[in-house]
């Protein structure tokens, strides 16, 4: 790979009801393996993907929510969550999985991956990217 690109994966769909969330997550992990600068945004119903306490044991579906914990190991350390989407759904940061990464530049200190941004701030993040993908 000759050049590192900034890629933002924008997740707008709830998990389980459609296959977007699971497919998007798999693409993110594949992209990260190619040493690109990958980050994710969760807006709209996408914020439901990282709601904590998901348990599919009674519904015959794969619970892929633990996979979000692996993102840090793939150096996907920036997970942007839109404040307005949380507010509209009556959610707060405490309702989300406590996703973390280990910062290799800071003696592998464990740091939160989730960054809550306003819509305006997130628009700024989008403007900085080379490539944007919606799932």
């Amino acid at each position: 790979m000759s050049e590192t690109k900034k890629m933002l994966y924008i997740n707008r769909n709830a998990p389980y009801g459609t296959v977007y969330a699971l497919e998007g997550l798999e693409v993110v992990l594949i992209g990260a393996a190619f040493e690109q600068d990958v980050s994710m945004a969760f807006i709209g119903d996408g914020v439901y993907q990282i709601l904590k306490g998901q348990d599919t044991s009674e519904s015959d579906m794969k619970n892929f929510s633990p996979t979000y914990n692996a993102l840090g190991d793939y150096e996907v350390t920036k997970l942007y969550v839109e404040q307005e989407s949380l507010d509209e759904r009556g959610l707060t940061l405490d309702d989300l999985m406590p996703l973390v990464y280990e910062d290799e530049d800071d003696d592998w200190a464990e740091k939160p991956s989730i960054v809550v941004l306003s819509r305006t701030e997130l628009a700024g993040v989008m403007a900085e990217q080379d490539v944007l993908f919606n799932f």
């Binding site: 709601l51 904590k52 348990d55 599919t56 009674e58 519904s59 619970n63 929510s65 009556g90």
Partner: peptide, 27 residues
């Protein structure tokens, strides 16, 4: 509860049910 759509359910006189396994899957 607490979301912008809450009034659609709480403001209705109809009995509302929710499927437990789908609630559980979604946390």
């Amino acid at each position: 509860k607490g979301g912008a759509s809450e009034a659609l359910v709480s403001g209705s006189s109809a009995k509302v049910y929710a499927l437990g396994p789908d609630l559980k899957a979604r946390g």
